[in-house]
Computed example of a mutant assay.
Amino acid sequence: MKVNGIDLKEKYGSKIRIGQQTIRERTIVNFTDWIDEYDSPTTGQEPKHKFFDVEAELIVIGTSKTDAELTVSNIIADCRSGEIELDNVDLILTGELKEAEKEFKKRWVYALSLKFQAWDKMESEVTVTIDDASSKTVDVAGNLETPCIIELVPSGAITRYTIKGAARNPVTGEEEDIAIKNLSAGKKVIIDGEACTVTEDGANKYADTEMWEFPTLLPGANALTFTSSSVPCDVTIKYKPRYI
């Protein structure tokens, strides 16, 4: 089990044993109502899939009561929030520690139960490279819309660069353009749909960007097109497939 890249078994060695690790299903919020006078229910918006619980059972073994207490404290500190990777599951979970309970078993041995409140269930990052192309279909696994990161490196100055297919109106679902202006030769521009930032060589470039939504990709085939002057521009798209 890893939290924020820390392998708990490697860090604590013989002081811990990691047992059952469980991913619970998400909480589902429905908006369907059934008015007494009606013959059938009325539906509102689509159901919302919200938090899900992640649970892990550990045994903590101390050389003394103080050692056991400090080990429990350090494990809880390591697990407060961030990315969680369970054993034998190739998914990355994002969440925060909601409950931690310890139970005395015998002299300086405790059962430690950790319960996380999680909201993202993702695969490892996928990178798609598009070398000087005007279009590309990106096939995305998963069953939820996922933020993506678009990196642009122009070979020369570009006055305006437009990306279609990576942003949608949140109400109508219709595609909307992402346009970025005044690109300089060799300077990497990053439109980060996860961090919600736009930078050029690390400096803020949001003022040169025209968009209503940061870029995302939908499950399945995403047809992307790229429009600029005749100046070539290398494009890299990064994303993590997400699941309900």
Results as ranks from 00 to 15, higher is better:
Glu83Asn: 07
Glu83Ala: 03
Ile84Leu: 11
Val89Glu: 04
Leu91Tyr: 11
Leu93Arg: 02
Leu93Phe: 07
Thr94Gly: 09
Thr94Tyr: 03
Leu97Arg: 00
Glu99Gln: 13
Ala100Leu: 14
Ala100Tyr: 04
Glu101Gln: 15
Lys102Asn: 14
Lys102Ala: 06
Phe104His: 13
Lys105Ala: 01
Lys105Thr: 09
Lys106Phe: 03
Trp108Leu: 04
Val109Thr: 14
Val109Ser: 11
Tyr110Leu: 15
Tyr110Gln: 13
Ala111Gly: 09
Ala111Phe: 00
Ala111Asn: 05
Leu114Lys: 06
Gln117Met: 08
Trp119Leu: 02
Asp120Asn: 03
Lys121Gln: 07
Met122Ala: 05
Ser124Val: 08
Glu125Phe: 05
Thr127Pro: 00
Asp131Lys: 15
Asp131Glu: 15
Asp132Glu: 00
Ala133Leu: 13
Ser134Gln: 03
Val138Arg: 02
Asp139His: 10
Val140Ile: 08
Val140Leu: 03
Gly142Trp: 04
Gly142Arg: 01
Asn143Arg: 09
Leu144Pro: 00
Thr146Glu: 09
Pro147Met: 05
Leu152Ile: 14
Leu152Ser: 15
Ile158Cys: 08
Thr159Ile: 10
Arg160Cys: 05
Tyr161Met: 06
Tyr161Thr: 11
Ile163Cys: 02
Lys164Asp: 07
Arg168Tyr: 07
Arg168Glu: 04
Asn169Ser: 05
Pro170Gly: 12
Glu174Asp: 14
Glu175Tyr: 10
